[in-house]
Every structure is written in structure tokens, then in C-alpha cells.
Design a protein around this nucleic acid. Structure first.
Lengths: 410, 410
DNA sequence: CTTAGTTGTGAATCCGGCT
DNA sequence: AAGCCGGATTCACAACTAA
């Protein structure tokens, strides 16, 4: 029993009726049916009748290029694609506690070269572009391993980029060896089928769900964990890269209408389908692995559609912004080279350009150096160190308050 | 008079002595000078002597590809590039009040096609790669208009991507038409010259300035505005896309050492040079437009370098001298025959006179025996084993610190 | 029942000097 | 040049256990 998911939907059961595997059966007339050529925007959802030959709300097991080429051209409103990232991982990676990181080492993520990956990318993007309605649009998600290839090819094929969106992960995996910045985000590209496409964008809906501020291109959302994450009978994750439903909800709410047909060429365990069903959109999922497709069908069967009025807002986690001391240096509120001191001026240290402090031979955070100065195991540097302002001592915490006010907009 | 900048540096004047335009004059022997081949890491900044033929701390006016090809190969530690964005703006963009948005429409930002832009990108990236030292690295900043082209070509040329970084703008320009998400970020790519490059990364410094949490790939920084933004006599901005100094400061602090040579092929109004000078790095700037170069020279002349202690590379654990455990025995800090134990006193072993440990039948280094005791493949003995001192457990790492202090004093 | 402490884990291109 | 081996390295959450 699933208690909640990224949409706040109560799903009462995981063991819904699983439909049989669906092999694609569509006409190959080359012309989209009437419904596919209608402009969804001008119709009420109840009037939208997708073409009969579309395999709606089903999971097609097989190669995505072949399956999508079998769809009528111009029949799909939106594509959401989460293709293999081509991670190119070397040996295994261990956490500092020596536990092994469960890496994505599946065969479907292996490509011999960039050229191979590019050919693969060009093939599925071309197929998707053919399947899209003239006013349709496409979303792709990726990481720095692949997203630049995808973005370039997409432009080459004539897609028109509308935004790149950054999914800032609330709880990313840290960089265990301290050799790089924490890889804390993934990138989504939102592109219209072409420059002239009258793409769908629900500006007001998203603005309303964002404290009446325009929705920005950086989205802060948690990973897919907990009850939302599909597990097998042994408790292992079914799919290594299951995306959070909150992410898909934002995509579908902003860039599709109820009744629209959403195609996902890399359906996996069906997050796109689950969210589409909840939000009153149709989906077509293509997935190569029967194991994932089966899990997706069972999952989607258990989803209860939401009433339309609930479609307007997507829940998003908001957190009190943490202010690094470095931000005070960058904002000019304190200066590199300046001296900080404690209340009774018994200790002092110098601010460095990187937001650390120096005290004699020691360099460290305001907290570490504060602890060192007092010979204590720990110290809150914000409430220990002061700077001189107009002849008086001003606590760093006060300056942090000023920054918080400035940052509140985001 | 400039009051503050992203580094918190007081710059007293804009009207410093502007050096004459510098046309490049370097030897073309094809071999970097001695200084260029030395490994900066093992030297103090004062010992680093960049090759004489490098046009250091100067602005070269001219085409960046030709200018960079004239540099000795393998002579540059870091590249920071802010290339033209290839913005494809249709007509004029107007705000809701009908005022005209001062968009990027200069001639240098027009490219006939993606192919032209790709060729241009390949040319300057190739030149930069040749100029870089084997262990050098490159940063590029861009938006969704160009960054996917740049990223793909960079990978094709053999650069090894380390991170993509998202600069989240604190105060982005709103999307006036409400047809897209507010474009609130730009993307930076950090890439090593090659997969095997031993790139520079000051992990501890960044972590120390960030509340002792490792720095993530999403950076929240304000735009370049106010006093930092260069204006001409009529109050108009000198350069359309001047980057904030705080952004460059993070890049240079994290990925370069004091004394390093930083090349900027699209110098503009010299943010890279200003920050490099403040932080004790050398710069080589190439700029095609004399008007930008002039503004950059004047700006940089007015920059006061920070005191060295404000930017000197902080000692990291990795760079500290190695201390053999035997030295602790020899110094009498631990005694042969003494017992060592882990934090929870679940394991113990005995110190031998040769600096090894005994645990039952096994003999080996503090690391090997620590690993054996826990049944793990590896273990850091310094942070695992303790000895009893004044009734309390004392970590071997603390005793190692005492040895290092003694060594530094001697 | 609450709370505090422990354990597990997530799309990751994750070491470097010396012999 | 390849191999050895010393030893440096993690954040946010959720779930579970213990008191």
C-alpha cells in the first residue's frame, strides 16, 4: 500500500489489474486521424477524441525507434524522454564508510563511442519529431555526460529550444572522494517541434503555484525515494533511475493540456504514465525491458486520477535557504583580508577570499576556526565572530540576516 | 571610485595608468619554457616563474584563435572563456511598458548557422587545448543557445568533463511575455584538458567557505550590477554581458593556484583579469574590440591585489608531508609493546618496534591490520586506531599532528 | 508513544606518489 | 610504465532499532 507520492495522490494498491503486454497495432496510412490534427487548446478536454489507432495509455514493449515510427505522424502533443545517459563509469566507487555505491552499470547505458551515442540520439529524436503534432513540444532530461550531445542534435533536427531547466536535487549523492563539486543537478531541455510551433505553456497556473512569482528555470525537488520508489520483492529498486513524480507533474502541468497525448520513448517504470493518468493526460509508453514495463503497468493501474481543480499546483519542497559564509564575502558584506573577533576581543582571525578564516597556521570554516580559538570541539561561527562596523562590533549572524532578506526572492 | 566588488576589494580609482595595447610577441620554438613545465603544486607561489615569452597580465587586441596559436604550447594552467552566445533574437524585445530591452544584438554575436558557430567553437577550443598544460583545465560559460554546441565539441576534442555548474541568478531578467520560464541561470562547464589530467581543485577551501559542506554544482550568485558594472560617460553599460567578479572568484579559487596563468580568449571588459590580479594569479586576455580592451586595462590597473594570506592555498591533508608510523615509535610518542584499539574498543592490536602492528597471527601496517580487524579491504589506520593517554583514548592522527608540528619547527 | 541513535542509499565519468 | 599501497573521503532523508 502506497500512502502518498509526489502528487499527494492516495494510491490504494500496487496490485491493480495488470494489462497484458501490448504490441503496437496502428494503421500505417501516413495520415493522422482527425483528433490528432485538432488543436487541443481550442477544445474542452471532454471534446478531445484522440485517434482510435493510437495505443493510448499502454506500454509498448520493444525498441523505441521502431515503435514510434509505427505511430501516425503528427499524433502526439508532448514527448517526455529520459534516455540513457552514457555514464562511462570506470571502476567501482566506495563511500568513506567503505560501502559500495550501487552504480548504473546496466547494458542499456553502454555505448561504444560518442558517435554511437549520437546516432542513437538522432534516431529516436527524429522518430519523435515525426510523431509530434506541428505545435507539439519535447522534454529531455540528462546529465553532463549526455545532455550536450542531445541538445546539439535536437537543434540540428530543427527543434526550437524554449528553456533549459535545472532540476536541483534536494538530496543528491555527495562526491565521496572530494575531487569535484557535488553533482547536484540534472538538466532538462524543453523544445518546441519547430520555431513556428504554437507550444502549450500554462504560465498562470505555474505562477500561482509559485507564490505568484514567475516560475524560474531552476527547480528544487527531492529525489525519488521512500514509498514512491518502486521496489521488488527483495526490497531492491526495480529501476536504477526512477524519476520523481513531482518533476513529471511540473512538466505536464506546464506544457500540456488535459486530454493531450504524452509519448515517453524510455518509459522505464512509468513515472510519466502514472503522472499523466493522475493529471488526465493520455500516455504512450515505449520500454525495451519487459521487467520495467510490467512494473509500470501495475503501478499505473493503481493510480487514481485527480480531479481537474487539483491540477493547478504541483507541490514543491521549499527549504529555508542556507547561507554560506562565502556568500557574505561575495556580496561585499565582509571583505577578504578583514579581521573578525569574538565578543571580548580575546581572539581574532582573518577572512580569506574563499570564505574561510586564518588563525596562525590554521585555515578553516568560521565554525572550525572558532572552535580552535576557544579550544572547544565545536562552535557556531555565526554567533561567535564579529566584524567592526561604524566603530561597533557586529555579529556575523546579523549580516547573515541581511543576506537572507536579499535572497528571499528565490 | 569603486566602493566594492565581488571580492570585497576596495579599489580606489578607475583612472589608473592604462598600459599601451599589447600585440603578441612570443617565440615560436614549439617548446614551453622551463617555468611552464614545472609542476606548480610542488612549489611555493614565489618560486613560480612563468616563461618570459608569455604576454602576462596584458590584454592582446585581436582575433583569439591567432593570438592563442601564437602562445607556446602547454603554457597555460587554466582557461576561462565566455564566448559569444549566438543568440537568435527575432525582432526587438519589449517590456510590458513598451520600453525596449537592450538585447545582445552586436555584430560579433551573429552567426549564419549552427555550422558556422560550431566551426568557430572548434577553432578556439582547439587553440586553447594546445595552449593548455597537460594538467590544465578549462571553464566555459554559456546559455541554452550555445552551451550544448560548446559541450559537444569540447567532448569531441578530448576534453574530459568534470562538472557542469549552474549559475543561479539571484536577480534574473523576468520573462516579460510570460511565454516561457524565467531564464534564471547560465551553465558553466568545467573540463580537464584530458581524461588523465591531474587537474587543480581546492576542495577544502570551497567546503570551508560553505559551512563545512562540500560545494554543490548549483551556485547562487547575483548578477553584475551597481558599482561593479562598467558604464561609459553616458551611463550606458560598456559590455552587454559583463560577468560578476564573484563568479570568477569561485572559479579561480577552486580551480587554480596562486601564480597560475589564466587565459581568457574573450576578455571583454576584463573580469577575469581583475579577479586574477586580486587573487594573485596571472592572466592573458584576448579581446577583439579595442573599446572593451581599453576599459579592461583601466579597470584592472585600479585593482588592488588582496594580501597573500587572503588567497594563499590552504594546506590540505593531501598535501601535507607523509609521516611513517615508525616515526611515532622512534619519537617515543607511542611505545613498542603498547596496545592500540578502535573507538568502541571492539578491536585491539599491539605495536611492534618496527612500526607494524600485531593482531593474533597477523602482522602489518596500521592500515592493513585495521582493515583486517574490521574485515574490510582498506582502512585508514591513522583515524581508526587509538592509544590510551591520561585515561582517554587518543587518535593516532592527533599524535601524527604533533610530529608534523615538530617537523615544521625544525 | 516519543525520541534519540543507527543504518542504508541515491544517474558518479571520484587518488596519487613512489618504486 | 605499471603496480603497489598509503591513506583520504559524504549529505540529505528515510527507515529502522533501542530506550
Amino acid at each position: 500500500m502506497k500512502l502518498r507520492n509526489g502528487l499527494g495522490v492516495m494510491s490504494t494498491s500496487r496490485t491493480g489489474t495488470a494489462s497484458a503486454p501490448v504490441r503496437i497495432q496502428v494503421s500505417r496510412t501516413g495520415r493522422p486521424a482527425l483528433g490528432a490534427r485538432m488543436k487541443a487548446k481550442s477544445l474542452l478536454p471532454s471534446q478531445i477524441l484522440p485517434p482510435r489507432e493510437l495505443p493510448l495509455d499502454q506500454v509498448i514493449v520493444g525498441d523505441c525507434v521502431a515503435a514510434i515510427e509505427a505511430l501516425p505522424p503528427g499524433s502526439v502533443d508532448l514527448v517526455f524522454a529520459d534516455p540513457p545517459y552514457n555514464l562511462q563509469l570506470g571502476g567501482d566507487l566506495r563511500r568513506p564508510d567503505d560501502s559500495l555505491v550501487d552504480a548504473v552499470d546496466d547494458d542499456w547505458d553502454k555505448f561504444a563511442s560518442f558517435a554511437d551515442y549520437d546516432a542513437f540520439t538522432r534516431a529516436w529524436l527524429t522518430a519523435c519529431r515525426r510523431a509530434l503534432k506541428p505545435d507539439g513540444a519535447l522534454w529531455v532530461i540528462g546529465s553532463y555526460h549526455n545532455i550536450f550531445r542531445v541538445g546539439s542534435i535536437l537543434q540540428d533536427l530543427g527543434f526550437w529550444m524554449l528553456n533549459d531547466i535545472v532540476w536541483r536535487k534536494a538530496n543528491p549523492m555527495p562526491n565521496f572522494r572530494g575531487r569535484r563539486f557535488t553533482n547536484a543537478h540534472e538538466t532538462l531541455i524543453w523544445a518546441a517541434r519547430g520555431e513556428a510551433s504554437k507550444y502549450t505553456f500554462h504560465y498562470e497556473a505555474l505562477k500561482g503555484g509559485n507564490d505568484d512569482l514567475q516560475m524560474r528555470s531552476d527547480w528544487y525537488l527531492p529525489l525519488c525515494t521512500g514509498d514512491e520508489r518502486l521496489k521488488d520483492e527483495k526490497g531492491a529498486k526495480v529501476h536504477p533511475t526512477q524519476k520523481p513524480e513531482s518533476l513529471l507533474a511540473r512538466v505536464l502541468l506546464s506544457a500540456s493540456n488535459p486530454g493531450d497525448v504524452v509519448l515517453d520513448p524510455f518509459f522505464g517504470t512509468g513515472t510519466t504514465g502514472a503522472v499523466a493518468k493522475a493529471l488526465g493526460r493520455h500516455f504512450i509508453g515505449v520500454e525495451r525491458e519487459e521487467v520495467y514495463a510490467k512494473a509500470a503497468r501495475e503501478r499505473i493501474a493503481a493510480v487514481q486520477p485527480l480531479p481537474p481543480e487539483a491540477f493547478a499546483t504541483a507541490p514543491s519542497k521549499r527549504s529555508e535557504p542556507r547561507v554560506p559564509f562565502l556568500s557574505l564575502v561575495e556580496a561585499g558584506l565582509v571583505k577578504a583580508g578583514e579581521t573578525v573577533f569574538d565578543e571580548k576581543r580575546r581572539h581574532s582571525a582573518t577572512i580569506r577570499a574563499d570564505g574561510t578564516l586564518v588563525l596562525g597556521p590554521a585555515v578553516g570554516s568560521i565554525h572550525k576556526v572558532g572552535a580552535l580559538a576557544q579550544g572547544l570541539p565545536a562552535c557556531n561561527g555565526w554567533t561567535f565572530w564579529h566584524v567592526e562596523r561604524e566603530g561597533k562590533a557586529m555579529l556575523l549572524d546579523v549580516l547573515r540576516g541581511e543576506i537572507r532578506t536579499q535572497m528571499a526572492a528565490a
